[in-house]
Computed example of a mutant assay.
Amino acid sequence: MRPIDLAREHGLSTQAVRNYEEVGILPPAQRTSSGYRRYTPRHVQALRAFVALIPAHGHADATSIMQAVNQGRVDAALALVDRGHVRLHTDRLTLDAVTEALAGLVDSTGATDEPVSVGVLAHQLGLRPTTLRRWERAGVLRPPREAGTGYRTYAPADVRDAHLAHQLRRGGYRLEQIAEVVERVRSAGGVAPLQATLADWRSRLDGRGRAKLTAAAALQRYLTEAGH
């Protein structure tokens, strides 16, 4: 087979196929007496596996997986696949925790429209004021300050963010992770508008899971073709 024969199936350029060979995504090709590359069914399966791995694991890990297989380090390739599944599982657990925490927010906040002090909010959550200040330094909370006194005042949205952070913190999440989640809530304009974001987030995780199934099947076919 010629480079164009491999490239056409995936809408690639022949140069892309040659580049994939040079970086080790495809195994080395034999050459004709005139120097032209000759590809085999093994190369066809390798390219199919790589293309399937990209949406499942990302371009960088897909490249590393194929390089490891072509170097005979199948155990290293499978370890990379395992790492991708762990990341997906972790992301699902995070989504479940965020969904649960947001559901609990409906009844735990919004009792008053009046801003509260750091001491009052800390008492509500059973925390020390120093903990809330640490969350502020980490970007989790952004309470405004009173003009003149400089005291922190927590509006209802700030109280909501603090309750959400408290629930996620109890779930073992790091402050930098919590800051990202709280920022999603702020950007969405509250808890209710975030439901669509959560549904999209879950859909994308499901898509990654299905992509991993497709990639696993393609990689297994290549391993068989390559004699592993």
Rank of each mutant, 00 (worst) to 15 (best):
D5Q: 14
G11A: 08
T14E: 11
Q15G: 12
A16W: 08
N19L: 14
I25G: 08
P27N: 01
P28L: 05
Q30D: 06
R31N: 02
S33D: 14
G35E: 09
Y39W: 04
P41I: 07
P41A: 04
V44E: 14
V44H: 11
Q45N: 08
A46E: 05
R48F: 00
R48I: 02
F50G: 02
A52Y: 08
A56W: 00
H57Y: 15
H57W: 05
G58V: 03
H59L: 15
H59R: 15
D61A: 14
T63K: 10
M66G: 03
Q71G: 09
G72D: 04
V74W: 07
V74M: 01
A77G: 08
A77N: 08
V81C: 03
D82A: 15
D82I: 00
D82T: 02
G84F: 04
V86W: 05
D91P: 00
L93W: 07
D96I: 07
D96A: 15
A97I: 02
L102I: 09
A103T: 10
G110Q: 06
G110V: 10
A111Y: 06
D113G: 14
D113M: 09
V118G: 02
G119V: 05
G119S: 15
V120L: 13
L121H: 05
A122K: 03
Q124L: 13
L125N: 07
G126Y: 09
L127Q: 10
R128C: 01
R128L: 09
P129D: 06
R145E: 11
R145S: 09
A147V: 14
Y151S: 09
A157M: 04
R160S: 04
A162L: 04
H163M: 09
L164A: 13
H166Q: 08
Q167N: 06
L168K: 04
R169K: 08
Y173P: 00
V181L: 07
E183L: 11
S187A: 15
V191H: 01
T197P: 00
L198T: 05
R202A: 15
A211I: 09
Q220S: 12
R221G: 08
T224K: 12
H228V: 15
